[in-house]
Design a protein around this nucleic acid. Sequence first.
DNA 1: AAACCGGGGTT
DNA 2: AACCCAGGTTT
Length: 309
Amino acid sequence: MSLRERSRRTEIVDRVIDWFSANQRDFPWREPECSPWGILVSEVMSQQTQMSRVEPKWHEFMSLWPTPADMAAAPVAEVIRRWDRLGYPRRAVNLHRCATAIVENHGGEVPSDRDALLALPAIGAYTSAAVASFAFLRCEPVVDTNIRRVLARAIHGEAIAWDANPRRDDAEMSELLPEDPQRAKLWNAGAMELGAIVCPSKKPQCEVCPIAQLCEWRARNYPASTRKARGQAKFAGSDRQLRGRVMAILRRHPEGVLFDSLPDLVEPLAADSGTSVDISHAERTLLLAEDLIRDGLATRAAERIRLPH
DNA sequence: AAACCGGGGTT
DNA sequence: AACCCAGGTTT
């Protein structure tokens, strides 16, 4: 890499840190007194979920379960019920498993080592690095969807980022990571914030961007990407929607319901529903209920199905 | 590499 | 109605 390119990248990092220091949004998990557990909870809740929806739920959880031991002592059913409609309810189950593992294997303290974090249930490349950097000031490369987009544009001149790839992502971000842990944290959080606020996938606000003059995508006059954004399955009529409705029933009935009554309790979906068109609504509902049991979101005893203890 | 996993906000 | 969101796991 040329000396000039090296200098450009260093300046990108510096400017993002300055911008973030002055312009970051206030979130409770960014307060200096926030515990590592609070940061971990915020990161899990934030997976595929907007901050605006996370914040009230985070306050509720921290009030109910201020430490891992508090959550580990609660029935998982209660965590699922309180998770309510935040989405991806397995995260509630996994968070409870995290709390239990932290109590059993780490004396009730969130581990500071990235590999130990990675070993926790449903803590992957992103969340392990985020907690290590934000809660423990470790120099770990944080890469989320925002950062991949910012790097694709500013560094590589491409509109759309590559697919998530932990090895490549770590290498890309490590190259830019400041050695000072505090600055590493500001760069990690700042690059993410820049992608979320100034450089979203559509309508980037280059006029207020602190690195517009250094941006390779801008220098090339915003070429369209040759790669394709990943399409997503329709939600209306999908299995995911039906699972959500079954979970809503289970949340509403602490004592559980008769397994065979589930199809009657769940409102029928629209007729033009998704892929599994050849089986009845009742059959499909009961099949998906079995999946929920397998996934640890429900249990079945005798003829009743309910949230797990 | 691609599919699956919720639900709500935005455009 | 399509797209997006501080991802992770499974196949």
